[in-house]
Design a binder for these strands. Sequence first.
DNA 1: TATCCGGGGTTTTTT
DNA 2: ACCCCGGATA
Length: 752
Amino acid sequence: MNLEGLNSSQRAAVEYNDGPQLVIAGAGSGKTRVLTYKIAYLLSQGVPANRILALTFTNKAAREMRDRIARMVDAADVRYLWMGTFHSICSKILRHEAEHIGFTRDFTIYDTQDQKSLVKQVLKLYSLDDKVYKPNTVLGRISAAKNALIKPSDYARNESVAKQDRQDRLYEMPKIYSEYQTRLRAANAMDFDDLLMYVCLLLEKDEATRRYYQQVFQYVLVDEYQDTNYVQYRIVSYLAEPENRICVVGDDAQSIYSFRGADIRNILHFQQGYPNARLFKLEQNYRSTQTIVKAANSLIHHNENQIYKEVFSEKEPGERIDLVGYMTDRNEGEGVARSIQQYHAIKGVSYNDIAVLYRTNAQSRTFENEFRKLGIAYRIYGGMSFYQRKEIKDAIAYFRLAVNPKDNEALVRVINYPARGIGETTIRKVSECATMQNTSMLEVVQHPVECGLEVSKATASKLGAFGDLIATLHEAADTMNAYEFAEKVMLLSGIRTAAVMDRTPEGIDRAENLQELLTGIHELIDRRTEEGIDFTPIHDFLAEVSLLTDQDQNLTDDTPRVTLMTVHAAKGLEFEVVYIVGLEENLFPSQMCVKPSEIEEERRLLYVALTRAMQYCHMSYARQRFRNGSVQFSSPSRFLRDIDRQYIALREGSVAGTPATAAPRWRNNSWSTPSKPAMPSVPTKPLTHISDIKTETQSAEYQAGERVRHGTFGEGTVLQVYEENGTRRIDILFDKFGKKAMLIQFAKLEKI
DNA sequence: TATCCGGGGTTTTTT
DNA sequence: ACCCCGGATA
């Protein structure tokens, strides 16, 4: 095995394989390279592929790594590597062990929508107000419990959980959680968190199974370890025993998923768990210019909680980071679009090498509009993905129901689609009957008399027809291959007819999407055939599709496109040119965070964004942004102050079409008041440093009806002052705009 | 039973 | 601005 493509620290990390190992890999330091080489190295040392478990963050990362390994070692057995996300590996294990835990191997994985609908049913059952018990909040609690390995039976007894629930007046959480879990079980279904929780509980309780998997996995490797949560930590610990040949790779500075339970302490305290663990640090960045790396360092060093490291680059110094203040969000869109056009036209940069990164998906709109105007091809990740479209979900629901007859959510989805004259009332009766008889809804539909369902004769025959359809499909599901089965579903269910009949643009779209779904299924079969598997039932397609994410879609499209995505989605990627937009208080950092630890996470998020850039990095903010239906005024992000000034070049963005109000603006690299101020009485201290940017919110006693003056937007009348999500807000009717504006920053306000 | 309309609530990030 | 829900109507 040739390890010459590695530097000395990378090489040391690859060659050490005798015990627990922690690799702290700074951004762009060749983390994936180390993992790839390491696995190839293990294979070359004679470790069988099916004895290696490698957990990655996305399926795409797994696929790419597999390809790279296959190119290094000429072993055909690369496909036997256990490589994938925690969720997909757990799902694979659970399909094997399903019977041990009271499921069949055909269990369905409920997605977020299914979960939500299930929670609503439970709330209805107990007549709970969904204004108090918000489905999303309830789901968040359940998810947190599962990540902490708290089963429904333990939930009520857990003091810390109970305390939190009391505080939020969610007294019935134990009941809800328990019923939710019962219903999932009854539907032979699991949610995302169950996949992890059940594997963990299985390993904990069943010694034979635990021994078995411990023996199977001689080596355990975990990528992006900083984003693992408690269950994942436990699973990894179990599997690595007793030899503890475990290698975790990560960067604490890039931990950005605590909102879904990731615990940065896993990586910070790894060495406490494994006292004999060896630490390897990769600090040389091969991706970005020195300026970008140094700027990112200066930012992240403002965090309290971190493993200290100094990432460095030996590439050219490069250009300073361009920071532009725009007047409005639209200006920002225009400015970025124009700048991209210049890179494209003058420097000949491909659109593929350019990315626009934002904090929230909602920000993509403005850029889409401006890009379309200038004819810039783009690709958006996130938002509505292919598999979330209604017609696709409907088709998949038929697949699901055919494979797992207990899948009630799937049944409710398609029982009246296409329209069969089965209405809400009937569905409710079926559901109630199923609950009473302790059976599935499909069972009730197929045997209404035995279940004691009382419906009219006409309704009964409609139900019967649907029941027969599903019965036919159920039989076909196991015997036909996935593609032919899908064709059959489209034909018999009438969803294709429904789509084809509809000649509206949306209808045509839907028909095309269904066709694309068929193509996707065909591709899976082709892939399987290549791997030597000659029969692929629809079941295999379902197992894969529920764990896919947007990033996993390999878009077969050779037009170069600019990438638009959230910073979260950009993790692990790199681009020649990166635009980080919307750097404003209450947006980036998000208005949701209050605690210092949350601010630190946002700072890490910006760190991730910065370190995506290879050559050029642009940052921008807007002083006024259209959000939630009204204009909102904002000030530059506090993080701009954290970045060392010497790495930043300030510019003033386009101000075309801005209100006549005199706004302080960036000019000649400094903050200055316009020469002809419309608001002479407002003292605006000229700012010369980024550290002068005011971001603190002040409390002040404003009252409805009072007249106020805003430093940038002039005079207005206070409508109301209130608190929301822990932030003090004020609504003002500005004379200039004649429209209500919500304001979070009080700093620029004064009473008249 | 299907569809249209209006009101109310919401908007961080995702496996 | 947008989504979701409920109520009223065809």
